[in-house]
Write a protein that binds this DNA or RNA. Structure first.
Lengths: 234, 234
DNA sequence: GCAAAAGTGTTTGGTCTACACCCATGA
DNA sequence: TCATGGGTGTAGACCAAACACTTTTGC
């Protein structure tokens, strides 16, 4: 990769650098399950253009810090959430965001358990919007399509990996797990088949603890592997 | 996404802008099958740092053109290849590439049929390296890990989509198709099962043409759908 | 006549799907 | 006593994997 340093320096000196290369931003699609609905964390755009519309938490990427570090920094400053599962999604060309320069947005998506989210989140800065009701709100820039892209990836990851653990508490019942799948994927799953399949995959281990659910005691499980495993779940 | 224009402008005026945001580059992993081997297109880094090492074709992204347009431009200028199947792979933080600024590389991978490749490519600028022999050459920057990442994605796409058409000529025999799968995936496939499966998926149609292969006549097929289809192949 | 590649079916084992009832207990 | 959710097994359909021989013709 040959970078023409001289040309870039020349453009600097002419103060037109900001026209010749795009600015890099990082936007985050944070999913959580709240009130049995899949929700997305959004914030309100404070200034023109698109002032007042809902947008994804994001910011300009700073040099000197890796993408991961930029992610953590943006997440913390924008939402006060700390330490979530994250994955890079795609880089989008957002040419219309600002007339003065072009922006490339590196989009990430993140999953967070509701309880951790409620504990940490700063609701003066952010709000939760149900995924199924995104059509009813006004989203800024092309953030709607970024969220839809993230949702597709999430669906796929649910079906083929153990990613579900990142949207659940550490210990959970099989019914909770199944419900998370049904909420996100949007269809019902047969209870017996689901349990048989999950158990046969040996991705969970019993914690030994029980939780009282209404009247019965339900076994609490946890994922036996800390790492994400690629394995056909459904 | 709140961009702090004032802050950025201030940094411009101080001429330290190039320290505060990273430069965006685009690198391309081009795969083709040559001599029954999966190969990658590489070029030689012409200057320091990493001078003389093999690197992926790439260049700094220009504002004013979309990522796609930047891709086409870089591909054409660097290899003289025109019009290939491409897909965005991942964005990598390449902090060590140049001490003076940080680079984010948006990596793409591309597939090209050998014949189109040979017709177009400018071999004074590029060369082919067998994927399995990448360990024997010196690759610059972190391009080895980018290529490995691309290979994983390619494997997955082969198994679950009709992407194979982009590395084959338009018309091909079932044996050619099977061979492409074996070369890329790296293991043998049962001929009868492969044919049964492929035919049952109805992703191919007979062209009516035959090709003389040694002594027998083999039916030539083509993909019936122009678009990439997501469907479990293997 | 032999090497090389095309083409073609069947059996078997495993996996997925559909489906229904009992139990415990809090209200 | 009833509403709620936990927990369990089986039969049939479908799919994947293993496996071998005949045909053609260039050399």
């Amino acid at each position: 990769m040959a970078i023409n340093h001289d040309e870039i320096k020349k453009k600097f000196s002419e103060n037109i650098f900001w026209l010749s290369i795009p600015v890099l931003a990082l936007d985050i699609v944070i999913f959580t399950i709240f009130n049995d609905k899949l929700c997305v964390v959004l914030t309100t755009r404070p200034k023109e253009p698109e002032k007042g519309k809902l947008i994804l938490p994001g910011w300009v990427i700073k040099s000197g810090f890796s993408l991961e570090e930029n992610f953590d920094d943006i997440l913390l400053r924008k939402t006060w959430i700390d330490g979530v599962y994250k994955e890079q999604l795609y880089s989008f060309w957002e040419s219309d965001r600002d007339p003065r320069w072009h922006i490339v947005s590196i989009a990430y998506y993140a999953l967070v358990d509701k309880d951790q989210f409620l504990k940490d989140a700063d609701f003066t800065k952010i709000q939760l919007v149900e995924y199924d009701k995104l059509g009813e709100v006004e989203l800024g820039f092309d953030h709607k399509s970024i969220i839809e892209y993230a949702k597709k990836r999430l669906n796929w990851k649910l079906e083929y990996t153990t990613i579900a653990k990142n949207i659940l508490p550490i210990k959970f019942t099989l019914t909770q797990l199944q419900k998370a799948y049904e909420i996100i994927l949007g269809y019902d799953i047969d209870k017996r088949n689901f349990r048989k399949k999950i158990i046969s995959l040996k991705i969970l281990k019993e914690t030994g603890d029980l939780e009282k659910v209404r009247s019965n005691m339900a076994k609490l499980y946890e994922f036996s592997d800390k790492e994400l495993k690629i394995i056909g779940i459904l």
